[in-house]
């Protein structure tokens, strides 16, 4: 699929899709969305990239080993649950604090968010490795 149109389109679409994907992931706790949907949108961007430039280029563009990405995501999800254990609560008990972001006000940050980021990483890694494996065929 060596289409110039696709390649050009991808160049603009990929960053856009990645931003959308991150936003959807982060706002998921309050609006429709979440790590899962976010990651799928992000993966769509990279999949497009893969089709346009070939899987090898995409692996380079991803900058991170997919197995590590998945493992790291899973580790993050588990770790988010272990925070509570350190405090003596049950596994996966949400721990919350607020972070003051200049110009944005105070944002509530908690381990469920970390969990969702873990989900994001895993899903991105999973979808990408499946798509790339198929593209490499």
């Amino acid at each position: 699929m060596n289409s110039t149109i696709l390649q050009t389109a991808t160049r603009y679409l990929l960053p856009l899709l990645l931003v959308v994907s991150l936003v959807i992931m982060l706002q998921g706790h309050n609006k429709p969305g979440g790590g899962f949907i976010g990651a799928l949108i992000g993966a769509a961007g990279f999949a497009l990239h893969g089709m346009a430039f070939g899987p090898k280029a995409t692996r380079t563009a991803l900058r991170v080993d997919l197995v590590w990405l998945m493992a790291a995501g899973l580790a993050m999800a588990i770790a988010s649950g272990l925070f509570a254990v350190v405090e003596g609560s049950a596994f996966l008990t949400g721990q919350w604090g607020s972070v003051h972001v200049p110009g944005f006000g105070s944002i509530k940050v908690g381990t469920p968010l970390l969990f969702d980021i873990g989900v994001y990483c895993v899903v991105l890694g999973v979808v990408m490795s499946i798509v790339l494996a198929l593209l490499e065929e």
Binding site: M70, A75, I78, A90
Partner: peptide, 16 residues
């Protein structure tokens, strides 16, 4: 929880 977490973490490390 550990009998679930230990294998999961092991798998995680193995992947890393």
């Amino acid at each position: 929880v550990l009998p679930i977490l230990i294998p999961l973490c092991t798998a995680c490390l193995g992947m890393l």
